[in-house]
Amino acid sequence: MSLAKAIETGDLTQLPSRRDEDWRWTDLRGLLRELPKRGASTGVPTEGPFAALGGDVWLYVDGRKPANDAAVAALASEDVIQLRFVATAGGAANASQGLLVEPGANVVLLESYEAPADQAVTSVELKIYVAEGASLERIVIVDDRAESVTVSQADVTLAPGASYAQTILTTGARRQRIETRVAHPGEGATVRLDGAYLLREQRHADLTTTVTHSGLDGQTSELTKGVVHDQARGVFQGRIVVEKGADQTDARMGHHALILSDKAEVDAKPELLIFADDVQCAHGNTVGALDENALFYARQRGIPLEEARALLTTAFVGEVVDRIQHEGAREVAAAWVAKQLGQAQ
């Protein structure tokens, strides 16, 4: 059951629905009565959000792969690559890509979802393998349209001693799911999974992660933050599984959201499933309003209410941005967040 399957077959009963436990807050079957028809192409924007950072750019337009591209691409040495998924014509589209980060390589993956078309139903599936001693940092900026329905799923498998870090930044869509599943072997491998959802109007974003620790001595650190305005809805599902024998696992998960309107909603489900004895696992989950006292303090100093709100919410999300290692990507991310939160209501 998946959106990809439904698009491939045209069979909408393949869509996940609220009866599927992992999809209960992101019902696609109840939402999509039909798949939209492809419209006229609006053209591809010349530059994606990471344009200034260089590296190879792979462009996926309405589900079409770049020419001559292998199903699994091998990435070596110190690569920076950009994956741009662009919806130009509305309609339904699938894309998939396999990535292999070769042993010892240090790769930065800059991934963007751009939607010039008004309405699109898209599914993107990535399969990522990070080999022994290699590292991958993945930074994702998702700019969908308000009427889009999108799912992006990444399956990540790590070898011993590998490290994987990701930061997902999204403004949501009509319905949107961004999911990451990590097979964590322990054995000195490390994982950082971060995200921020900044939602306005009636947008929806669902950040779902599963990390499965299967071996000794693995580390995972997760931090997700949300800022939800108007009637928007944020969903966070974070699952960490520590299998039998995965002792000395150190796994921490935090999810913190600000609700800035009475009609906004945040649904959170942090889960720790621990079958090993000697582990350190913790999760923290908070959902609240902006601190009124801090707002008054800023206003007493002369900072107007809207600017004070933007300052405090940007700082709130800043903790996620600050964890991005790649300096250029961090700057792009910080500017993107400031732009999303600085807008007047």
Partner: peptide, 20 residues
């Protein structure tokens, strides 16, 4: 005095000076 997490003191004060 309130704590303002994530906002460097200089940034906060400069924002205030310029807003005024």
């Amino acid at each position: 005095p309130l704590e303002i997490p994530g906002v460097p003191a200089l940034t906060f004060i400069r924002t205030a000076v310029n807003a005024q």
